[in-house]
Amino acid sequence: MMSVSAMPEKDATSGAFVHTKLMPILTHYGIFLFLVLAILVSGLITPAFVSRDNISNMLMQLAPLGIVVIGQAFVILVRGLDLSVASVMATSAVVATSFSGQNGDAAWVVLAAISVGIATGLINGLLVTKRNVSPFLATLATMIVLQGLRFAWTQGAPSGNVPPFFRSIGTGAFYGVPYNVVIMFIVAIVLAIVLHRSAFGRRMYITGGNPVTAKLVGISSDRITIAAYVICGALAAGAGLILSGFVGVVDNFVGRGFELDSIVAAVMGGVALSGGRGTVAGALAGAAILVVISNAVVMFGLPVQLQTIIKGVVIVVAASLYVNRSH
């Protein structure tokens, strides 16, 4: 009888352990645990997945997406989203071809490309804050305008080569670590410090979490929102240069799909669409999961249609394990 009566107490104890010990771990680190699990499972199924060459390839794929995801996370934190990032990437890549052939042009390429991103972000921010246009419509409009300008400039067929400097940045490595990954981590560290250790970052969280409170404490929500869009645009332009250097060629659709992948990765990494919650590290983990999934299904030799289904299922599972628990 004593053993029977002890069972409920044991169950209650185990339940308390799960609630007090396990749940906080899943809440804060679930996305990272899911990433590690995805890598381990993929490596067990296909050992070539964890080969040095494939890991290096995945890191090179992660760099441009990761940079865009960081910018997207900033915008989502202030209750926005940016559908123009892919178009900004393509436009910056087209700009790069205008300076093809000489490494000495690299500084001008960077300046011109980043200027395009900053200008686009500024327009997006002004439309959202000063004209009260919804983020969806504002950024969709700038995406379409940039696409039209790009096609008019190139006559539908970009010509020229990516400057050698950007080709080396996109494909080169330093002691086995790709240059573009180093750039991504530098960007991530700097912006993580800005977001989590500065007054600007705190204002972003307040603006996104509770706009009414932000106004009551004297925060200029419009300026914070515009700044978030400008940061996103600048990062998208830089990512476009990195991606064009990686693929080695430029067309009018460089970065296609990044607008949706960046939103999915950020949200899956714990950046709340309702604003005011999220981290740079979590957003990067979400981007890494997308890259791992895409690479794994290719390594498994699965059909394209099945790849898309698996990618969607894994996104839902990852979101349910992490995002929902963070509410």
Score class of each variant (00 low, 15 high):
residue 17 F to N: 11
residue 20 T to H: 08
residue 22 L to F: 06
residue 24 P to Y: 11
residue 27 T to N: 15
residue 29 Y to E: 15
residue 29 Y to C: 14
residue 32 F to W: 10
residue 33 L to H: 10
residue 34 F to W: 13
residue 36 V to K: 07
residue 39 I to S: 13
residue 42 S to P: 00
residue 46 T to F: 10
residue 46 T to N: 14
residue 46 T to P: 01
residue 48 A to D: 14
residue 51 S to A: 15
residue 62 L to H: 14
residue 62 L to N: 15
residue 63 A to K: 10
residue 63 A to L: 13
residue 66 G to H: 07
residue 69 V to R: 02
residue 75 V to I: 03
residue 77 L to C: 08
residue 80 G to L: 10
residue 81 L to M: 15
residue 84 S to D: 07
residue 85 V to T: 10
residue 87 S to W: 03
residue 89 M to H: 03
residue 91 T to H: 02
residue 93 A to V: 01
residue 94 V to N: 08
residue 98 S to Y: 08
residue 100 S to G: 14
residue 100 S to N: 11
residue 102 Q to C: 10
residue 103 N to G: 15
residue 109 V to I: 08
residue 112 A to L: 07
residue 114 I to H: 07
residue 117 G to I: 02
residue 117 G to E: 08
residue 121 G to I: 03
residue 123 I to C: 15
residue 124 N to G: 08
residue 127 L to R: 10
residue 132 N to R: 05
residue 136 F to R: 02
residue 142 T to Q: 03
residue 155 Q to D: 13
residue 157 A to P: 00
residue 159 S to H: 03
residue 159 S to E: 12
residue 163 P to G: 11
residue 166 F to L: 06
residue 166 F to T: 05
residue 169 I to S: 09
residue 173 A to T: 07
residue 180 N to M: 15
residue 187 V to Y: 15
residue 187 V to H: 15
residue 190 V to P: 08
residue 194 V to C: 12
residue 200 F to C: 11
residue 201 G to A: 06
residue 205 Y to V: 00
residue 207 T to R: 03
residue 207 T to A: 12
residue 211 P to L: 00
residue 212 V to K: 00
residue 214 A to Q: 00
residue 220 S to N: 04
residue 223 R to K: 12
residue 224 I to V: 03
residue 230 V to P: 00
residue 231 I to S: 04
residue 232 C to D: 08
residue 237 A to K: 01
residue 244 S to C: 05
residue 245 G to W: 04
residue 246 F to V: 04
residue 248 G to S: 11
residue 251 D to F: 09
residue 256 R to A: 15
residue 258 F to P: 06
residue 263 I to H: 07
residue 270 G to V: 00
residue 273 L to Y: 06
residue 278 G to D: 09
residue 282 G to Q: 04
residue 292 V to Y: 02
residue 293 I to V: 10
residue 294 S to Y: 02
residue 297 V to A: 08
residue 297 V to K: 02
residue 304 V to L: 09
residue 306 L to I: 03
residue 308 T to R: 02
residue 314 V to G: 03
residue 316 V to S: 09
residue 320 S to F: 09
residue 320 S to Q: 11
residue 322 Y to K: 09
residue 323 V to T: 11
residue 327 H to T: 10
